[in-house]
Design a protein around this nucleic acid. Structure first.
Length: 299
DNA sequence: AGGTGGACCCGAACGC
DNA sequence: TGCGTTCGGGTCCACC
């Protein structure tokens, strides 16, 4: 569930604590985290590395070491990171790894569902690994309506499914796709390639606005996510559609509807986000159950 | 080849 | 009350 805004919030909070620090002692408690490699082997590789930078691509947290090697952390659904003075964190049955830094602080990794991954890459492997999996950064200046249109072109999948594909745009998940589509007033089931230039432009802006707003509120804490100092994000209070089935649309008051799209629970406003243009819907209705006037004209 | 659905996990919510 | 079942969600993979 951590999506781009949550990972960026974590990056911003950890960066000043990590950059320049050495990984003094590394304990990997869950072999799934580094599969197929041995936890003790990966821990030994990490010990002694000094952090040069903390970056992010999509939902990946990128720990760059002075050696050029890179630790790619993906939180998947329930991963989270805490930073605190050594020994100050309470025991946690879901703690999967702990890194002791050379300033006497700990970075603890927690993951209830154990989907998260720590991937140690050699310098020459990093760019290709990320390029294979990720499209453009939605908050970069290079993410434009034209670029998005290129990625959606000729795709017959629902636009929601296309946006969940990390190669279309990096960093969107189920929550912020729904929020972006609501802002753009685009129905989640619209075939991706069917969007016109104006809709693409609105979607580009909707994606950026949804993500920026969420970063400003330190992300969304529904269950497992928290910032590295243990605080909750506040974006969940501002969702326009996600999880709001039956509640009135903030724009028009119509009750938010829930459907399935891209294999995911999907919330949208059935009035603001139309599958068919209004005129086409009216035409179909009158074809099925003719009104007085259309009965007159077609008879 | 692009699109879809299942597997991986586990706690919470739900149903009887 | 208690137990079994369903659900969710990011990514990969198998299959159509």
């Amino acid at each position: 569930m951590p999506e781009l805004p949550e990972v960026e919030t974590i990056r911003l909070a950890l960066e000043p604590h990590l950059v320049g620090r050495r990984f003094e002692d590394v304990e990997i408690r869950d072999p799934r985290l580094v599969r197929p490699f041995e936890p003790t082997a990966v821990a030994a590789e990490l010990e002694g590395e000094r952090v040069a930078a903390l970056d992010r691509r999509g939902k990946y947290l990128i720990v760059r070491f002075e050696s050029g090697r890179v630790l790619l952390i993906h939180l998947r659904m329930t991963g989270s990171l805490r930073h605190a003075a050594a020994g100050s964190l309470a025991d946690d049955p879901h703690r999967r790894a702990v890194v002791k830094l050379d300033d006497g602080s700990d970075v603890a990794y927690r993951d209830v569902r154990r989907f998260g991954t720590w991937h140690l890459l050699e310098p020459e492997e990093v760019d290709e690994y990320l390029a294979q999996r990720l499209g453009r950064e939605p908050l970069d200046r290079t993410f434009t309506a034209r670029r998005l249109a290129e990625r959606l072109d000729r795709r017959r999948a629902p636009v929601k499914a296309a946006l969940l594909d990390q190669r279309t745009v990096a960093g969107l998940g189920n929550i912020y796709v729904d929020e972006a589509l609501w802002r753009a007033e685009v129905h989640p089931l619209r075939p991706a390639a069917s969007l016109d230039a104006d809709e693409i432009a609105r979607l580009t802006k909707g994606i950026r606005d949804a993500l920026r707003t969420a970063i400003a509120r330190q992300g969304s804490s529904l269950r497992d996510y928290s910032t590295p100092d243990g605080r909750r994000g506040r974006m969940q209070e501002r969702f326009r559609v996600y999880g709001r089935e039956g509640e009135p649309c903030a724009r028009c008051g119509t009750p938010i509807d829930k459907i399935r799209a891209g294999g995911r629970g999907t919330w949208y406003c059935p009035n603001c986000q139309r599958l068919q243009p209004r005129s086409a819907q009216a035409a179909r209705r009158s074809a099925k159950r003719p009104s007085r006037s259309s009965r007159h004209s077609s008879a």
